[in-house]
Amino acid sequence: MRFCILGLVEVQDERSGLRVLPTGAKQRALLAALVVKAGHEISARRLIDELWGGHPPANAANALQIHVARLRRLLSGPAERDADQPERRPWIETTGHGYALRLSPAETDAARFQHLTDQGRRALLHDPGQAGELLGQALSLWRGPALQGSVLGDICADEATRLDEHRLAALEMRYDAYLRTGRHGEITGELVDLTLQHPTRERFYDLLMVALYRCGRQAEALAVYERARTRMRHELGVEPGPALRELMRRILHHDPALARTPGPRPADPSQPRATPAPADDAALSLGDEMARLHRRIERLQREQDQLLRCFRELTASAAQRDMSVNWEGS
């Protein structure tokens, strides 16, 4: 039995292939909250808040008991087929103040995802090819947004946010692994989509800029930086961070280290050595022109700020003089 929350909340019987999907938002939210807090008691009061928020029914405790009973019946079918572990049933246990799901973390797809992600992270430096495979397996467990259709209260909302952040981090590591194994030509389209889906996440811009540069597309890599800068100023009111600015500078000056695919393993002498495609003269001149325009825009912005300060000072001074004349005239 595996309890799945990386998508619609469901229970999978891995031996028979059957799937158990709770019907109704309250049933899904109840199962989701119990899975998120598996092995720990959740008080009845907190479960009521999770299911109904600030508008519980008059008989909230009884309504919760009815939902728990229905969920127990839903899980009893797969439980009865699992004759090897009769001591593990029932799944939902009544505690002193609430309920708990008798479930080990290893029985959830979220735990499997975290295990594979940790393995991929450890392999990234010494074996990026293996890291890419592990991270791909981890990400394949996702069937949709975490806890899809079950986020009614804080328990599930907080967990959905945490899991989504871990998914994005796993995506970043996987594309980093692909760059380390020379697969930059395969991933530019996917990274473009990710920068559009997550316009304030700098790491995706970083990875895309490196991939484009290694494909010999320097001007496009610099254009990605300008797009990132525009979006961040619009969305967050800030400039890109120092890491992205430094990458833009390195691309502009053709840092030789950027063209090399990092990786500790020596190349196989029997295989031809791949070299990055050189940027053509048009791309280089366009990149230089973009950099010149970028510096010009920054200089104009500084001059505009200075003029605005002078204008405010003159306005304030004129206002003080008017007040002085009016006072003397009175």
Rank of each mutant, 00 (worst) to 15 (best):
A123Q: 11
C215L: 05
T275G: 13
L31D: 07
L196C: 04
G241A: 03
D193I: 00
A277P: 05
D288T: 11
Q130W: 04
A111K: 12
D49T: 08
D84E: 15
A169K: 12
T94I: 04
N326Y: 08
A32R: 10
E313A: 15
G54F: 04
P242G: 02
A228F: 03
A279G: 08
W52S: 07
K37S: 12
R312C: 08
P86S: 00
L139I: 02
E80F: 12
L125E: 15
A29Q: 09
E239V: 00
D154V: 14
R260M: 07
M323A: 10
M173I: 02
R45V: 14
E41A: 09
Y205D: 06
Q306F: 09
Q271Y: 07
P262W: 05
D109K: 11
R265P: 03
Y175G: 02
V68W: 06
D288L: 03
L8T: 12
Q27K: 15
K26F: 09
E133A: 05
E14R: 14
T23R: 15
S150N: 10
Y205T: 02
I297K: 07
R295Y: 14
I297E: 14
A100Q: 11
L31G: 01
D206Y: 15
R45W: 09
L222E: 05
A223T: 06
D127Y: 03
D127H: 05
T161C: 05
P272S: 06
E93S: 08
G17A: 02
Y225E: 02
P278W: 06
G17C: 06
W142Q: 14
L171D: 02
S76C: 07
K37A: 15
G39V: 03
P240R: 08
A221W: 06
R46K: 12
H55G: 03
G54C: 04
N326P: 01
A291V: 04
E328S: 11
L314A: 14
G96P: 05
Q119A: 10
T200Y: 00
R233S: 08
I155K: 05
D127S: 11
R72W: 03
A257F: 02
L139Y: 05
L134S: 03
R217M: 07
L314R: 14
Y178H: 13
L284H: 05
V20Q: 11
A267T: 01
Y178T: 02
L293W: 13
R46M: 06
R296A: 10
L196E: 11
A60N: 07
T261G: 03
E10V: 06
A221Q: 07
L64Q: 08
A316T: 10
V210R: 11
R249H: 09
R70C: 00
A44P: 06
L171I: 01
H254W: 13
H184D: 15
L103I: 05
L196P: 01
D127V: 00
G287T: 11
W91D: 09
L103W: 12
I155G: 01
P90T: 05
L134H: 10
A279C: 12
R28T: 02
T188M: 03
R295V: 13
E165P: 08
G185R: 08
Q12K: 12
G120I: 00
